[in-house]
Simulated scan of single mutants.
Amino acid sequence: MFGQRFLVIYSGVLTAAFAVSMLAGFAKSPVATFDEINVHRINVREPDGTLRMVISDSAKFPGVIVKGKEQPKVDRPQARMIFFNDEGSENGGLIFGGKRDAHGDVVDSGGSLSFDRYNANQVVQLLGVDDKDNRMAGMAVSDSQENGSRHRRLWVGRSADGSALLSLMDGGGNKRIQMTVASDGAAEIDFLDANGKVIKAIRGDSASP
Results as ranks from 00 to 15, higher is better:
196 G>I: 08
206 S>Q: 14
106 V>Q: 13
105 D>M: 09
208 S>R: 03
4 Q>D: 13
9 I>A: 10
178 Q>N: 04
69 K>P: 00
64 V>K: 08
15 T>S: 13
206 S>H: 07
201 A>D: 12
34 F>V: 05
84 F>D: 02
4 Q>T: 13
10 Y>D: 14
143 D>N: 12
29 S>L: 04
105 D>K: 11
15 T>M: 15
200 K>V: 15
167 S>Y: 04
122 Q>W: 10
73 K>C: 09
170 D>M: 03
27 A>Y: 07
203 R>W: 13
153 R>H: 07
122 Q>K: 10
128 G>A: 15
34 F>I: 06
48 D>W: 06
81 M>A: 08
8 V>K: 10
190 D>C: 04
181 V>P: 00
140 A>M: 09
174 N>V: 06
189 I>G: 00
12 G>F: 06
198 V>D: 06
37 I>M: 09
158 R>C: 02
96 F>Y: 03
151 H>M: 11
79 A>Q: 03
90 E>Q: 08
202 I>W: 14
183 S>T: 02
56 S>P: 02
34 F>P: 02
84 F>L: 05
35 D>F: 05
116 D>P: 01
50 T>Y: 06
69 K>V: 03
39 V>M: 11
181 V>E: 06
18 F>G: 13
122 Q>V: 03
3 G>E: 14
107 V>M: 08
134 N>K: 07
143 D>E: 11
58 S>R: 12
91 N>F: 10
204 G>V: 01
29 S>P: 00
192 L>G: 10
153 R>I: 02
107 V>E: 13
81 M>G: 03
91 N>M: 10
126 L>M: 13
24 A>H: 12
136 M>Q: 10
118 Y>T: 01
37 I>C: 10
20 V>E: 12
162 G>S: 04
43 N>P: 10
166 L>W: 04
173 G>Y: 08
47 P>I: 04
40 H>I: 09
127 L>M: 15
170 D>V: 07
116 D>K: 07
185 G>L: 02
139 M>F: 09
137 A>S: 05
11 S>I: 15
198 V>T: 13
159 S>I: 00
36 E>F: 14
6 F>D: 08
137 A>G: 01
149 S>I: 11
28 K>N: 00
168 L>F: 11
78 Q>D: 10
188 E>I: 03
15 T>Q: 15
36 E>L: 11
192 L>E: 07
206 S>W: 03
16 A>F: 14
196 G>Q: 07
31 V>I: 06
52 R>C: 00
205 D>C: 08
150 R>T: 10
42 I>A: 06
1 M>S: 14
206 S>D: 08
51 L>Y: 01
38 N>P: 12
181 V>W: 02
88 G>A: 01
83 F>K: 02
113 L>W: 05
